[in-house]
Structures are given as structure tokens and as C-alpha cells.
């Protein structure tokens, strides 16, 4: 089970990022738990300066855009 955190202040791309990861993990049989983190201080502490940001098991792997399937493939490898 991988814990995925999507950091974002609730903008459209942030919600789409969460959806994208859900679809991707379902298609690839990856067991994930997705948490949406909207708290500003938490976003700051994660060191994310452009949202949406994505962390897998506490490590930030992506920021600034909705990740593509190819990028997710890499992050989950």
C-alpha cells in the first residue's frame, strides 16, 4: 500500500491530479491511499512552491503540473 499525498490549495489542476493518480493506479493494480493536503503550512513544509505537488510515501516526486501517465509510471516504479 502506497500513501500518496496530493498537495494543492484546491485549484482545478489539483483535483485533476488526484483523479489522474486514481485512474492510473486502478489501471496498473497499484494499491494506493490518496490524501489531499490543502493546509498551507503543510504545503510549505513539504517545500512545494508550485502546485499541484505529489508525494509518494512522504517523498515529493512531482510539482507544478498534472503528472502524465509516463511520469507516474516512473514515480511508481
Amino acid at each position: 500500500m502506497k500513501k500518496v499525498t496530493v498537495y494543492g490549495t484546491g485549484c482545478k489542476s489539483c483535483n485533476e491530479t488526484a483523479k489522474q493518480i486514481e485512474t492510473f493506479s486502478a489501471a496498473n493494480n497499484i494499491d494506493v491511499e490518496i490524501i489531499k493536503e490543502k493546509d498551507l503550512m503543510a504545503i510549505m513544509d513539504a517545500g512545494i512552491m508550485t502546485t499541484p505537488g505529489v508525494a509518494i510515501d512522504g517523498t515529493v516526486v512531482h510539482t507544478g503540473s498534472i503528472p502524465s501517465d509516463a511520469e507516474l509510471q516512473k514515480y511508481f516504479a
Binding site: 490549495t9 510549505m44 517545500g47 507544478g64
Partner: peptide
């Protein structure tokens, strides 16, 4: 929409 995270990143 990313002005706030950016602002926080600079401040921290």
C-alpha cells in the same frame, strides 16, 4: 493560483 505556495516558499 500558485502565488501563495510560491510566496510561502520564498518566505520560508
Amino acid at each position: 493560483c500558485s502565488s501563495i505556495p510560491l510566496f510561502l516558499g520564498f518566505v520560508s
